[in-house]
Design a protein around this nucleic acid. Structure first.
Lengths: 230, 230
DNA sequence: CAGTGGTCTAGACCACGGT
DNA sequence: CCGTGGTCTAGACCACTGT
């Protein structure tokens, strides 16, 4: 016997959205009605439609029901691997070089990114990730030693801060900003590219609850592309 | 009476992961055990852990059980609004200018992105999106007329292809590539920036099932940042 | 083969938020 | 107020996969 799966309900819903059987801006039947029509339990319909709502293809509100948005804001997901895995997944040999590490008061922009007020000593790390011995990514990181005191005793010349933090500071939240930067001379030198070259950059701040852990800017060598999918 | 919610189960699981009560690389108890321990139904545990697995914080396999990955590959989510909404959300006035539109055989790189073999006539669109009358984003798009025949009759000087497609060609899948580009002269001219300026770029290809719809490259004016969150 | 997660069901209660 | 989605439950069967 074949039971209805939530995937099949979802596929049918998608079909109706695409065929405009459920027109943009319009309301769709209640869960209970759909469940009866399709011959399954309401929970199954709920699972299917909840997923579509999370993807931005439906808007659900209690009492108001479910409707097809006029301008759906689709959600894409992107994987955030540690840099070593990113490089190895491309079939390249990973290399790593710690350029500098010291303790210093964080500059104002870092403090504001971390929502810290008083300027306290933080750990500043500059490191280079290599792929097949070519510069791949320059890591410029500030770490809050209050959040991860163990890092003060860690030898970051053999393991990157990127990797150490992933393994030792499970975080709860983070935000990202992607952009482009014309390489200033010192970055161009580190990445072995021309001054002014267009670099893809990622700025990331991570938190454990309300405690800021780290803020980092990654500058990728020219040509890097970051992939995502819907 | 207070019943256990899947959110509370998820929070407890997160706590155990962070506190290393469930150590990296280690296996965690079965759903049934957890359900009994926490005093809820197995379905509730399943919902909580499934979400964590989707976020990359757990790895679940039938028979093998659930474990905490050593190098979690976290997933970030990214909103993909239409460009008009992106601009208006920044409190700026949206403007739009169609630069050119014609039918032409697609170049090989576009064909390969769309997984098409024979070179057929496609619609090529070049358009500029403006924020407060300043160039914001240059849209360079190829549309497969087989997927959306109506577009041949659409006036794309009043509505952008970006917006029209979102409203008229609900897609099922898409992939993205983000990168940086040093502005060539013709792009610099359109965006009113210096030649060689570092531009953030998005390349996107979308599909309806196995039918390719469109492939687009967006070049954003210098300074643009795209935000994401975990 | 057998253990584990994946899913479905039928019913119930609850929370939110239009009216 | 009361309709709608959000969630929980207890039980059942199934699908995948390690041994």
């Amino acid at each position: 016997m074949s039971t209805i799966t939530w995937q099949s309900v979802q596929a049918e819903a998608l079909r109706r959205i695409r065929s405009r059987e459920w027109p943009p801006g319009g309301q769709i039947p209640h869960e209970a009605d759909l469940a009866e029509e399709l011959g399954c339990a309401r929970a199954t319909v709920n699972r299917a439609l909840r997923d579509l709502a999370e993807a931005g293809l439906l808007e659900r509100r209690r009492k108001a029901g479910t409707r097809v948005p006029l301008n759906p804001v689709r959600k894409a997901t992107l994987d955030i691997p540690i840099i070593r895995q990113d490089i190895e997944a491309r079939g390249l040999a990973y290399g790593y070089k710690l350029l500098s590490r010291n303790e210093a008061p964080a500059p104002p922009e870092i403090l504001s990114q971390l929502s810290l007020k008083k300027s306290s000593q933080m750990i500043h790390i500059l490191a280079l990730h290599l792929a097949d011995n070519h510069p791949f990514c320059l890591e410029n990181r500030w770490v809050n030693p209050v959040a991860v005191p163990e890092i003060t005793k860690t030898d970051l010349s053999t393991i990157s801060a990127n990797e150490w933090l992933v393994q030792n500071a499970a975080f709860s939240a983070g935000d990202f900003a992607f952009g482009a930067l014309a390489a200033p001379a010192h970055i161009a030198k580190a990445l072995d590219c021309a001054t002014g070259a267009a670099l893809f950059t990622v700025e990331r701040t991570t938190w454990a609850g309300s405690l800021p852990i780290t803020s980092v800017r990654l500058c990728y060598a020219p040509g890097y592309r970051m992939l995502a999918a819907i």
